[in-house]
Simulated assay, not measured.
Amino acid sequence: MKKFTLLLLFLLINFGGLALGSWLMNNGPETSWYQDLSKAPWTPPGWVFGAAWTTIMLCFSIYLSELFKNHYSLTALRFFIAQVILNVGWNYVFFNQYEIAGGLIVIILLTSLIFYFFFTFKKDVKNYSYLLLPYMIWLCIATSLNLYILIHN
């Protein structure tokens, strides 16, 4: 597939995953359950989450289009599918099911998977691997927020 076609495909899948995850949150950030939680002092305002995820998914889609153009493998595809499931699943586990510890497990797995992409396929995508940095940084922040909530509630 051409890189542009791959980019469109990954944009559709990644932003579709964000939309599905948002729907599965069941108004999570606005619920009294979430509002009443003790949150980390470094928790960003709500608008930052939307801006961060938009940036992350744009960068991730470009990265994936380069990866699959240069190095299509069943392993990469399986890990991408796992990433989608974990990314969407965290919203459901944390906000819909109120499973703080379960959410932490999911986000740790997701973070590990994105770091796996970065280090495993670095040679295949060369400088494009740095497009994963916003995702990696954000997941470290999100993991710390989830952990703080687990410890303090």
Rank of each mutant, 00 (worst) to 15 (best):
N146P: 02
F94S: 05
C140M: 08
E99D: 14
F68R: 10
T143M: 03
T31G: 05
L132H: 00
N27I: 04
N153L: 05
T54K: 13
F49V: 10
W47Q: 12
S144Q: 07
M1K: 02
Q97H: 09
C140I: 11
W53E: 07
E99N: 14
K3H: 08
A51Y: 08
T120N: 12
L109I: 10
S65L: 10
L8R: 02
W90G: 02
L37R: 10
T54P: 11
L113H: 11
I13A: 04
K69T: 14
F121K: 01
E30Y: 13
V88L: 06
N91V: 03
F121H: 05
L74F: 14
C59K: 06
N153Q: 07
T43G: 02
E99P: 00
Y98T: 12
L64P: 07
F79V: 13
L74I: 14
S38D: 14
K3S: 09
L8K: 08
E30M: 11
Q83I: 02
T31V: 01
K39A: 11
L74C: 11
K69D: 13
L147E: 07
L11I: 13
D36N: 15
W33F: 03
F118E: 06
L132N: 08
Y34T: 00
G103L: 05
N87D: 05
W138C: 00
Q35N: 14
K69G: 06
L109E: 04
F49Q: 06
V88R: 08
F15C: 05
M136P: 01
Y92N: 05
E66V: 14
G16T: 06
F95K: 01
L147K: 06
L133H: 03
T43I: 09
L86K: 03
I62G: 07
D36T: 15
F60H: 10
L104P: 02
G17V: 05
T143E: 04
G28Q: 02
L132S: 03
N26V: 10
W23A: 14
E99Q: 15
I13F: 08
I85M: 09
F121L: 04
P41C: 14
Y63G: 03
L7W: 09
S73T: 06
A82H: 07
P44E: 09
G50W: 08
L9H: 11
V48Q: 12
K123T: 12
Y148S: 02
F94P: 05
V84D: 03
K2A: 12
